[in-house]
Design a protein around this nucleic acid. Structure first.
Lengths: 281, 281
DNA sequence: TAGTGGTCTAGACCACTAT
DNA sequence: TAGTGGTCTAGACCACTAT
């Protein structure tokens, strides 16, 4: 679904066919099976995408490329319906996602326009991403440096947050989060051991904990995030300013069944990392 | 749409009739006109609600009343379709809103369940509310005490944020935000004078700036919010701990056409007010 | 009045879960 | 296999905006 050839229909469910175009998000060029699904690392099949997502990605791409200037009007719903060969419902669903991300503004009776604040809220907090992806979407290169990795028993607070008995075996990590060689955060994570491969050793823990969880079949879906300000010499490790102020995020991550799969506590250096949220009424 | 009589259909567009039940949100019992709209304070008509919103409100009410226990299953989409006499699309739209608010979890092939973390995220940051409503939804009684109110020229930063020339006349306020007799925040707001009634005087500024804007036809719709941690003796006024740490929200409020209508900068005392966000992937 | 988005329906077919 | 939610369509009618 390239912007240069938008007249090609992305699918036609009427004929029972579901044309799946390789998603730009799924970067691994895994062999696609006949029903438009790709095997993941655990061997289970995941449906790669759907029309709404494909259309939204296509439009985001065209917006990124500057095809429509800030404030100018996008094609009407009817035009997009014809151009992409999908129903108006699908077009509307895709446009609603863009609006929720702050990329466009839709005005009743008038049209859909490129939002004037789209740049300000790339990677808003309301969308859950791994820390690395968050840093990348700010245009920086992430490094996660492990300060400590070990298995131990969960303390009372961790047990309560994760819904497990106190003392249950958990993987506990402490990491320095680096963006373009600058320390931007100190982070503490706790994952119930029962969710991880039984043969996992501390020196085999990968940089991406989201990836580790996914491979183990515990796919992060939502996070209940509490927001705080913090300061004090007990935060972090190594050489640092004891007067530093931090934005502190206390997050309980859940899979799609609302099962708690990770507790993360992250202290971001104020001023080195910008968080934004698009709040909608 | 009382939970005790859910079999009554909430509307039947097929017959061109749109039955509007008085929304619980619109507390003013204003006389409804024949087409199901209520006049607001500026005399313009506002459509009070729609089926999706009514259904979502009804279900939220039933959840609040504990009709379904935490973790238990809600009626299926088919059951709700029959019970309320609306289409499955409308039922799905309402359920999706509940899920986005963290109240329910929908599992493919299984059903919709009461979320185990619903209580934790009432009034999440991702939903834009007035400060008073935010405090009320935390179960406390808000008071906004004016520390300063005046008209003056916008400085460079304010002008840039609001998209107006430097020096343009603005209403600038400084307020102490109180919840149940405890100071929870210091807040600074700036509103372009052109948006306000020309005869507004500083001593006639109401407690609710959202209300003031609404009456003037500039209805808050979205806010681009930047999140910071802050401390220092220059924050706030009156007797206070100079070591206090604050969660600082820098917000540019827009109307539904993305026109900037208010800049607010609010310093919340860390620990006296809990912010949460539901992040979804 | 013409053109835009907003709401809602009925129905088809598919994918997932649990048994 | 039965029952659940997920995706998508085609079409109707309405509300809002601009002229």
């Amino acid at each position: 679904m390239l912007p240069s050839e938008p007249a090609v229909p992305v699918g036609d469910p009427q004929e029972g066919v579901n044309v799946v175009i390789q998603s730009e998000i799924g970067r691994t060029p895994a062999p696609a099976s006949a029903d438009g699904a790709t095997p993941n690392s655990t061997g289970r099949l995941l449906r790669t995408t759907n029309l709404r997502v494909q259309l939204a990605e296509g439009l985001r791409e065209r917006l990124r490329n500057g095809e429509w200037a800030e404030g100018s009007q996008l094609p009407t719903e009817a035009a997009l319906t014809a151009e992409y060969g999908v129903s108006r419902s699908t077009v509307r669903a895709a446009l609603q996602q863009l609006e929720a991300q702050g990329l466009t503004i839709t005005r009743h009776g008038t049209g859909t326009f490129v939002s004037p604040y789209g740049h300000a809220i790339t990677a808003g907090l309301q969308e859950l991403q791994s820390m690395s992806d968050t840093i990348r979407s700010h245009g920086m290169e992430p490094t996660m440096r492990y300060h400590a990795v070990r298995f131990r028993g969960a303390d009372a607070a961790e047990a309560a947050a994760l819904g497990i008995p106190e003392g249950t075996r958990v993987l506990a990590t402490e990491r320095t989060v680096i963006a373009d060689d600058i320390i931007v955060a100190y982070s503490y994570e706790v994952i119930p051991g029962a969710l991880l491969p039984t043969d996992l050793t501390t020196d085999a823990v990968p940089d991406s904990l989201f990836g580790l969880l996914e491979q183990a079949g515990a796919i992060p879906h939502t996070a209940v995030t509490e927001l705080h300000a913090a300061c004090g010499p007990e935060i972090g490790w190594g050489e640092r300013d004891p007067e530093m102020v931090y934005v502190y995020l206390h997050q309980i991550h859940h899979d799609s069944s609302a099962r708690p799969i990770m507790l993360s506590r992250t202290y971001f250096h104020e001023g080195r990392f910008q968080f934004s949220i698009l709040r909608v009424r």
